[in-house]
Amino acid sequence: MADTFTHSQTPEQRATLALWAVPGLGPKTLEAVRAFAGGSLARLLGSPVSEWLADVPVTSQVRRRLGQVEALGPVADRVLERCAAVGMELAFAGERAFPELLAAAPDAPPVLFYKGHIGPPRRRLGMVGSRHPDQGFLPFARKFAREVADGGVGVVSGAAMGVDRACHYGALDAGGETWAFLGSALDELDEPQARMLPEFLDRGGVYFSELPPGVRASRQTFPRRNRLIAGASDAVLVLRAGKDSGALYTAEDGLALGRPVLALPGDVRNEAALGCNQLIRDGKAYACLHVEDVWKWVGARPVLAVPPGSGGGWEALSEEARGAYRLLERVPRTFDEVLAGCQLSPAALTGALVELELSGLVIQYPGKLYEKV
């Protein structure tokens, strides 16, 4: 397994991975090193580090760490072997599993480590808030996230206790897709995140981290992961935040990236909502009063499904459309998969799926993938 995993990378990706594993070397420094290497990090892969170490544009601290390495290739091998051993996947910028919006951010990492299944492109909302909101708020946050996901919008957050976790579970309650960006490597999860992982993956969630194996969470890593939540989202919603809440950093990151920022207003006497109220007062965030505000600002146009058997639009559907709907799930299925499960001809199934799309009961993604709303 390790050999297959290791040799699936291109020389450029292997060099990128090795350099990214050096503590203190961030996205901007990596690009400076790429320019030094003539636009291709792969040129450094086959040369001893000692041959180019003196001239490479890095800090003295990074230079000392690179000086402890003979060559980049073995470093990449060790990282890849560790990823394979713990079931961790990699996505480099430009690959399908790497969030397209995030890849366009100026401070995006060159590679992400992840666990879970990456679904098809969709609109996504960053949903963040306090670890310790006011009493009774978490059920509301979970319900609101479910409503967001019911509209086909993916939920992005940080898997922290409190509001973040409630939003993840709300999306999973709706059978939606949710992404968690963590402040540690995926093999260094804290105990609550490790306990949550199996259920999270089973229900369609994805864990992401920019940190290579072995890196534990710290005061530096948590603020940096906030930019990933904002960067991977079409908009950011702060549900609950006191004046010093870390969720406000995610809002600032969203503003810096030009993302719409929304905030849920709260009682002016509630200190737990002070940060949200100040964002709105200062013109940094739009007031979010209901889920339709989310759909507006992320650019989604959801048409909520009429549950089978509830009358209305469902009763007006053809028998073929109803049958096709029953075969679909809250995860995308290909046309051929649906066809194999029904007795319709390809032409009849095509008509049924078009009818379901027009009724707002089904979303079609590129590549003829169909998902029940």
Rank of each mutant, 00 (worst) to 15 (best):
L274N: 01
D234A: 10
F92S: 03
P110S: 09
L239D: 10
A42K: 07
A159E: 11
G205R: 07
L90C: 08
P212K: 14
D55Q: 11
L17D: 14
V291H: 05
E329V: 14
A256H: 09
R131G: 06
P265Y: 11
P302G: 04
W314C: 08
P265A: 06
K115T: 05
K372P: 00
H168A: 09
F181K: 07
E191P: 07
Q278D: 02
L53Q: 06
G360P: 09
L239W: 03
R43Q: 14
A232W: 13
G126T: 01
G119N: 08
P192F: 03
C288Q: 06
P139A: 08
A305M: 10
A84K: 14
R124Y: 06
L327G: 10
V291A: 06
W179D: 05
I118W: 12
A18W: 12
S318K: 09
T334D: 08
T334F: 08
G129W: 05
A105C: 09
G26H: 13
L248V: 13
A85C: 02
A21H: 11
S310D: 13
E271P: 10
T6P: 00
A316F: 05
F144H: 03
R122W: 10
A180N: 01
A285E: 00
P346V: 07
Q9L: 15
P192H: 05
V338Q: 04
L356P: 00
F181I: 06
V303L: 09
L264Q: 01
A273D: 03
L41Q: 14
V236I: 15
R64Y: 01
V69E: 02
M196K: 02
L197G: 02
M196T: 04
G119T: 13
A340S: 14
R131T: 07
Q343I: 02
V163S: 00
G158T: 06
P11Y: 05
V58W: 10
L317D: 14
V306F: 10
A251I: 09
L289F: 15
V69Q: 07
A263T: 02
D202V: 01
E355W: 07
V22M: 15
P133A: 11
G158E: 05
E292Q: 12
N277H: 02
G175T: 02
S318Q: 09
Q135H: 05
F181Y: 15
V331Y: 09
P265R: 14
A273I: 01
V238D: 12
G323W: 08
L186N: 00
A42G: 04
G116S: 06
G38L: 13
F144P: 07
H132K: 12
